[in-house]
Design a protein around this nucleic acid. Sequence first.
DNA 1: TGTATACTCTACTAACATAGTAGAGATTAT
DNA 2: ATAATCTCTACTATGTTAGTAGAGTATACA
Lengths: 146, 146
Amino acid sequence: MKITYKGDYALKTILDLAGHFGSAPVAINDLSKRLDIPTKFLEQILLDLKRAGFVESRRGKIGGYSLAKEPAKITLGEVVRFIDGPIGPIACVDKQYSGCHDVESCVFRNIWSQVGNSISKIIDQVTFEDLLKRTNKANKTFNYQI
Amino acid sequence: MKITYKGDYALKTILDLAGHFGSAPVAINDLSKRLDIPTKFLEQILLDLKRAGFVESRRGKIGGYSLAKEPAKITLGEVVRFIDGPIGPIACVDKQYSGCHDVESCVFRNIWSQVGNSISKIIDQVTFEDLLKRTNKANKTFNYQI
DNA sequence: TGTATACTCTACTAACATAGTAGAGATTAT
DNA sequence: ATAATCTCTACTATGTTAGTAGAGTATACA
Ligand code: FES
Ligand code: FES
């Protein structure tokens, strides 16, 4: 697994939208400024996320994006997989990989499988509600220290 | 973490050399044929592995490569890190990553860190002796079934 | 109805990484 | 000597990433 900029941006964007869940939609421009993501790049990312059903949009004057489901119903893993592809550390765990012939007797494949599973166990379990709570807590702590 | 062809080839090569540990050096050509790796590519990989101290070489007529340490003293993690770089799923866990500003308060960083640790726990623990044993066992089982 | 605002869609591009290939050179056993 | 084998540097084709560009569509509101 490798988290690209696109993936990183997508996650940060969804977390931001999670923070506005239930309120008015948020404009790309606001997200772009707040999260420091190139506007035109973010446009594309949001379109992808919309097509996948993670977010929904509203056009026109008071338009913008909002989360399509409750933050508790979106996991980190879903988003990562959608944007950055399968979790496995090598293609042979997920699909064809021309370096692998003896798939049956290969001792490495088993390891890569274990690695994939242990990653999944982490990211498929944490939702954006969890992350939201942690953010709030982090900010509170931060304010207290000042 | 992403295992590239180069990394995959390196691991398979070292495992092969582990199987010949203590015996005569193995020629690149033999490895190349047996493991189905492009010869000139394998040359480069073996030079890298040599410079890193994983293997040693002998030139001339009966030359070839052999493992520089006991199979039990080389872990999967060492080789993977050397060939394919750091384990973390995102650069910010290992080094500078321009998408990350608020490193202190970022809720994702903690997750990526967990992911990295859980990968490390697997690959830093398994040695090529372990893999060798498993290969032998796999082959025995295979023969038995025939 | 006009217009500003905001999302939609397709195409293009620069930079980098990957997976090799090519070829000349150095060492060693016989 | 010479054949076999490792050594080293440079080159290249392909794909991926991280954007940019620009024209088009929908909506609120005066
Ligand atoms: S690494 Fe894919 S089967 Fe061995
Ligand atoms: S993802 Fe790097 S600090 Fe948040």
